[in-house]
Design a protein around this nucleic acid. Structure first.
Lengths: 203, 203
DNA sequence: TTAATATTTGGTACGCGTTCCATATAAAAT
DNA sequence: ATTTTATATGGAACGCGTACCAAATATTAA
């Protein structure tokens, strides 16, 4: 190849380093002052580089948000795991996890907005994020819990996806249409679980 | 009171007139060029007033979006009603409506973002909107459909809220995390409906 | 050294939502 | 006409995300 004249491109490690550095600062700002405080100019000031330099490493602002997503999801996951300790019954575990999931997003509206309501997120942003192992693991928790209850094969994946999107929907409604007199969240979550564990899927 | 010196405040009719005029233009822009094209400056230019004048009639941009919400919800409602004609069986009607609901928001991601993903919506904005009769009617369609299937009293309101938030959740996931290999939307909606029609709620 | 290439920087620019403010205008009472 | 009051206008300003571009800088091979 001998394409060795001139300054070489940044190594993968260097790129990674810079990206995670930006991400760390973004997370710092986000945790300290919330979503609104995370801006490109502010971030550059904090990191110590020119605002435009960031654009050499990130596609745009939403590309940076992924670093915050991972952190929030981990936090949520830990929250669920904490509430899951000392609970042994399979169906009790599933129910506890479901309630914890919904409760987390209602208790942390800013985090919910960050992850699920980022407007103009590029498809590629999400794809890259959702294919990460950690992300999948957060989702798989529910698959496992459901499988523990439903000993047979009951299309666990479809039930998992329905449960998760349903729970996200409950959180969304509470966060955005909070003034509507919704039914009790706990009851709604329980109701949602009845479909997850229903014996017959098709009619 | 004799507080009659100086220019009198605008009458309620005048206020209403101006607000709906702004709303009409906003809707026009939104339909023609999408969400991103609706800006305060652009709107003022179109209406023929100074940008700051709008702030005398609206709290801010999100206060204007309510006018678009109503239009979108009506459109969705019409879509459901159209697909509901000639379907007579109560459970078939409910299922058709549910599929239509989910399909609408997936087919119109911009509308979904507009209604459910407007960031920084003030609580009062939503409250004012959600208490309007038209809005409630759109929701009540599902209450009625569920009641038609469940002859007895089965906590219809809670089931309705669970179904609606669940369907919104499915739409949200498809719109924002579209690259995740979700299960089939039709199957998920059907799965969601099993909880809506489950005979026993509590365990 | 020099030449070549990659990256960073700085500046300018656009349109955005929003705030503040001084001024102009409209509509009524005196 | 004058005064009083409510509203409208225009302009400047702030910070925002983002695009473009010329100049500087770093890093390598020759």
């Amino acid at each position: 190849m001998a394409r060795t004249v001139g300054r070489p491109p940044r190594s993968a490690a260097e790129i990674q380093e810079f990206r995670s550095k930006i991400g760390r600062h973004a997370l710092e700002i986000y945790r300290a002052e919330g979503f609104g405080a995370v801006s490109m100019r502010r971030l550059a000031r904090e990191v110590g580089c020119a605002p435009m330099t960031i654009y050499a490493h990130f596609e745009g602002k939403t590309d940076i948000l992924r670093y915050l997503w991972a952190d929030v999801l981990t936090d949520m996951s830990n929250d669920i795991q904490a509430k899951l300790t000392r609970i042994v019954g399979p169906s009790e575990r599933l129910e506890t996890a479901a309630h914890a999931f919904v409760a987390y997003w209602i208790a942390h509206p800013d985090h919910f907005r960050l992850v699920f309501m980022s407007n103009d997120v590029t498809r590629s942003d999400v794809r890259a994020f959702v294919t990460e192992d950690a992300t999948r693991a957060h989702i798989q928790v529910f698959s496992d819990l459901i499988r523990d209850v439903l000993s047979e094969e009951h299309d666990v994946k479809m039930r998992t996806d329905t449960l998760i999107s349903g729970m996200i929907g409950i959180a969304l409604c509470m966060n955005t249409i909070g003034d509507y007199p919704w039914a009790d969240v706990t009851l709604m979550t329980k109701q949602l679980l009845t479909s997850t564990l229903a014996k017959a899927t098709s009619q």
